[in-house]
Amino acid sequence: MSIPPQSRVLITGAASGLGLALVHQLVDRGCRVLGTDVHTELPETLRGLAGVSYLTLDVTKDVDWSKAHDWVVEEWDGLDYLFNNAGVAAGGRIELSEMDQWQWIVDINLLGVARGCRTFTPMLKQQGSGHIVNTASAAGLIHPPRMSEYNAVKAGVVALSETLFHELKPYGVKVSVVCPTFFKTNLTESLRGKDEASQKMAAKLIDKAKVSADDIAAEVLTGVEKGRHIILTDRDGKVAYAAKRFVRPLYYRMMAQASAKMAKGD
């Protein structure tokens, strides 16, 4: 089922990366989009886009979510799609990850998604319709070494999404979770951590990725239109997840090889 024209869509992290790509492709479908991000002024990337409104929304702040809810009620009297997309990156060896770094990524990547779901679920249940799309990562399904905090929060988003998939189904509300691997984005700008070697490795994988944010956005929307719960957007993620589910010894060998390769650089 295609996303209908004039659908009411809210996207967090809409000023760049996957969020911006989703904005463009949803506008092309004739949707009305409320793009949100932490910027206090309308980002240059969203200027001049027909059908797009902008609202400052820091996903860690309850007051900002309340303002977004009020805006949706006043301007649209409802919501059809909620894309909880905003996120940051962190990683490295566990002994080098400080607790303030853990708190930072939990607040944004996990609790930011939880706040979005909690804010709009009553509205969607009352409507008896709507679709929540949470951006996690392949790291939420498979758990490579030296990515403890990122793996943990993304796995949390997958678990939250599965819980809500079952919880909201009786009310006619759909839930999907997006699980891409590395793709070209500005996520490297948010990278934090004291493990410089791991940071450089992650940045290299992102920068050398052959898949773009536009490619991922197209796969996301196809998955949404097909009603998929877990949306795997690229071949690498599909192969790794299949290995973990069906050929667990192969999956463990893959992880062991990756860990051994990283350890040689220590």
Rank of each mutant, 00 (worst) to 15 (best):
H39A: 14
S2L: 03
T188W: 03
T163F: 08
V52H: 04
K125V: 14
G91Q: 00
V63L: 13
R8I: 04
S2M: 14
T188C: 02
A86Q: 00
G112T: 00
W104Q: 05
E149H: 10
V72C: 10
T185Y: 09
F120T: 13
E41D: 14
L187P: 01
K204N: 15
K200E: 00
L26A: 11
V157W: 00
P249N: 12
M99V: 06
V63P: 04
Q126I: 00
Q257E: 15
E149C: 13
A217K: 02
Q25G: 03
D28Y: 01
A209H: 02
L250P: 01
D77L: 14
I231H: 07
G17E: 01
S97H: 10
S190K: 03
E189R: 08
R29L: 13
T185W: 00
Y241I: 08
G193D: 15
V175C: 08
V173H: 01
D64I: 13
G116I: 04
A243E: 09
R47K: 06
L10W: 01
L20A: 04
G91C: 03
T135R: 00
I230E: 07
K210G: 02
R32D: 05
S259A: 15
E75H: 04
E167P: 07
A159M: 06
S176L: 10
S148V: 12
A21D: 11
T12K: 12
A68F: 11
V63Y: 05
V63G: 09
A68L: 11
Q25I: 03
W71K: 12
N84Q: 04
A155Y: 01
G87A: 01
A21F: 03
R248E: 14
M255W: 08
M147T: 12
C179F: 03
M123D: 05
S16L: 05
P5Q: 09
S198P: 05
L55F: 02
L20W: 01
H131M: 01
Y171M: 07
E162D: 15
W65T: 11
W76P: 11
L55S: 13
W65S: 13
L187Y: 08
R47D: 09
T135N: 12
V133Q: 09
S7R: 13
P43R: 13
D100A: 12
E44T: 10
C117V: 05
K67S: 11
D266R: 08
S212Y: 06
T185N: 12
A260M: 01
G156F: 01
V247I: 14
G172V: 10
G223K: 10
T222W: 06
L205A: 14
V158W: 08
Q25C: 05
G78P: 05
